[in-house]
Design a protein around this nucleic acid. Structure first.
Lengths: 218, 218
DNA sequence: ACATGCGTCAACACCCTGTCGAGAACCATC
DNA sequence: GATGGTTCTCGACAGGGTGTTGACGCATGT
């Protein structure tokens, strides 16, 4: 769990007495409203007032719970990336038996997780350009995945399943970047995109050829 | 040249008497100011007032030349993509003699063009999330490149230089997407990125293995 | 001289963000 | 059931940005 908020108020660290309290409900209500509204329109089209009204509070009260609109999105993003991390954990450790199936599983799980929260992911892509915090959080998450893939590629090379080639880190960056961009295009539906039901197979194919120089590794 | 502006005023279609006029100077001044300012700070940090003052006019007068701040960026983007198109033209037609060198040339030229105008490209990435016009323009540009690459892949397969595999269009989309995202990370400098001097070689390697299943095609 | 259209800007209306200070509601303790 | 301290709430304000309006110069051709 990455630290999300710059200033103090909202969240678990505020110093609430103990369990449930009215404030927690409000906070969840804001989050829920945000996710609901994101399914309807773009993040930039949603004002803090919309979020507040949706949660049944006034705009100044919103600021008691979150320092800004972006902080809400950051919290949402945090959840999604945690889920993605959980989904991807352990997939690459037993790569040696049936590598093709493992790699496919990895890509497929990311696809499923992002697809399930596409409005949040799309919103993050929308503000990544303007919000340094979203950019940083996304960068650290991506870095984790890159390192996992890098390690897996090196392991495959050590056991002789994959030939030497590009530095494993550069390859891992390139492949993860490809996935990210292709998913974005697929989910956003703008511009040239791979059909959603084919996207896992297309990405997998490029991954396998890049790592093994063949699509059916040992 | 794609149509850029929604409403009438600026540009060549405004109905000016003939050649030079004070208005053209102002328009260039706005464009130049925008490009200069983009070298210093993010697009969202630049107000219309900044652009106007930089061009020596008042804010309302700015609206005489451009309908919005985004329209300025769109004009800038239009120039860059035209340049990129010119740079890429003809590179893929003689693929058969020395394919490796040709593909490398293609990637390398894009890299050079985007690198030369990185502030504009970065700014476009910044607003792509919120501005539908930028998104559309970028999409059409990307579509052109995808089609060119798709055709090249199919030609290579026909002459037996590349094996069959993924639908050429899907492959072209995936590879172009990868380049776009990797370039962005490299230029923006946020998150995991490939070193700028290696980026062409890394991308080329993935392209060649994906298309030919080897890095040294016939 | 005079109409026409380009070029210009002060002033306005509007929307959105973030803050401040005055309270209301809650909960522990005496 | 008073007291005191947090938690929580919002009306009102200040500020900054966008886009529009209406009136006014200044060329130019007739």
């Amino acid at each position: 769990m990455t630290t999300v908020r710059t200033s103090a108020p909202a969240g678990t660290g505020r110093g609430r007495r103990s369990g449930r309290s009215a404030g927690d409900d409000r906070e969840s209500a804001i989050l829920a409203t945000a996710e609901r509204l994101l399914g309807q329109r773009a993040f930039s089209e949603i004002s803090i007032d919309d979020l507040a009204r949706g949660a049944g509070i006034s705009r100044p009260t919103f600021y008691f719970y979150f320092p800004s609109k972006d902080a809400v999105l950051l919290t949402l993003l945090d959840r999604v990336t945690e889920e993605a991390d959980r989904a991807a954990a352990d997939v690459l450790v037993h790569l040696a038996d049936d590598p093709r199936a493992r790699w496919r599983e990895l890509i497929s799980r990311f696809h499923a997780t992002f697809g399930a929260h596409r409005s949040v992911v799309l919103a993050c892509a929308e503000v990544r350009g303007t919000n340094a915090e979203v950019r940083r959080l996304w960068a650290t998450v991506l870095e984790r995945w890159v390192q996992a893939v890098e390690a897996a590629i090196e392991a495959e090379r050590r056991r002789g399943a994959a030939p030497a080639g590009l530095p494993a880190r550069d390859l891992a960056i390139a492949l993860n970047s490809m996935n990210e961009r292709v998913w974005y295009a697929t989910f956003a539906g703008d511009g040239p995109a791979v059909a959603e039901r084919d996207v896992v197979d297309v990405l997998l194919d490029v991954w396998l050829t890049a790592v093994y120089r063949t699509t059916s590794p040992a």
